[in-house]
Design a protein around this nucleic acid. Structure first.
Lengths: 197, 197
DNA sequence: GCCCTATTAGACAGAACTGTCTAATCTTGA
DNA sequence: TCAAGATTAGACAGTTCTGTCTAATAGGGC
């Protein structure tokens, strides 16, 4: 009987509540700016509960990112399923999914991008968790492009991913929601150009 | 005789050294992660020297960003001057300027984007300093596009800016230099499409 | 020489930080 | 019922953080 549960995604109510509270505060104020005491006070949990489920604050951050990544991926897959089989509708649905996020009053950029900003060392477990998430984003876009009949979807997927990353950053920087529309328009123009060639 | 010098860009050797040291550490490890004690130890300066030139750590961060913004803008203008009058060469020179930055061993993303990530509140003086810098970036791109004869350079400038922001973020996340080439290729395709229409 | 400012080292306060430890209590399944 | 694990509150250590204060010194313009 191990004293500590494995740090994988075991789901218990307290653990989930801890992750949800931590995410909310981290996303609002930043990873270094939020101390565990504030998370525990907000979640109304004791310190030992945190250190029972996680070995360190860093491991909590990783768990937050892993959980968010899974949640976001579920939502993407749901949105794509609801979009039906039309490749063009699927691509538009992919972009449309971001609209409520950008329009939200609580929008504060991308929690993954901001995690990389605070954990710049690529070897950091936090940074690595972001890499896994962002790579899946690119893979999803590539599948959408392949469905559209783009002959070499890899480079175009990277380009469209750049547009979305830029839109997340720019919308946060300027507090301006039009960035998403610009990214979508540019992406559609790139797809059109790729299919023309 | 005021006790403190105005917090504008007065340049003194100690002040400049402080800003240079602070930038190096902030860029390497992050703004919250680096304490003033470490900056002072590295710069071999006393604490009161810092608080003589700046009212707070936050004001130091703003000074770092303002100084970097001025430096970067100088370099851009120099690169564009050296590129000559050809609008296309000027645009390519604008992208080429980023190559050594992305290729540098010390590359750690964009210090301004990372500042926004750590100071997410748009009203923060740090965030505001980033806005001023990034807006000038967009203006510069817009001028380049106007030179190219793009009829409505505003939206296209925003799109190309998104590509560059995305490239900075993605190159840092994945530790991969190809992001810049992808951004440039996409930008050229967008310009081509805009001129065709 | 003289004065004013810049700069120094270092102590100091007060807060916040992560992580550990204890001892009591709650919960739950065997 | 009982035993084991989960959870609690809170003290605690040790570090680090920003910012203030003092008292001494250095240095440059008058």
């Amino acid at each position: 009987m191990p004293d500590l549960p494995p740090s994988t995604g075991d789901s218990t109510p307290k653990r989930d509540h801890l992750i949800a509270t931590a995410f909310r505060l981290f996303y609002r104020d930043g990873y270094h700016a939020v101390g565990i005491d504030r998370i525990l006070a907000e979640a109304k949990l004791a310190k030992m509960t945190l250190y029972h489920h996680f070995e360190s604050k860093e491991e909590l951050i990783v768990a937050v990112l892993v959980q968010r990544s899974a949640l976001i991926n579920e939502r993407v897959q749901t949105a794509l399923r609801e979009a039906g089989p039309s490749p063009r509708k699927r691509l538009l649905a992919y972009f449309a999914r971001y609209e409520p996020i950008f329009a939200s009053k609580e929008f504060n950029g991308c929690g993954f991008i901001r995690a990389v900003a605070e954990y710049p060392d690529i070897h950091s477990p936090v940074h690595q968790a972001v890499i896994r998430h962002k790579q899946r984003d690119i893979d999803t876009i590539q599948e959408l492009l392949a469905g559209l009949g783009v002959v070499e979807p890899g480079p175009l997927a990277r380009q469209i991913a750049l547009l979305l990353e830029g839109a997340l950053v720019s919308a946060h920087t300027f507090g301006d929601t039009s960035a998403l529309a610009h990214a979508r328009n540019a992406a559609l123009a790139l797809v059109k150009a790729a299919r023309r060639s």
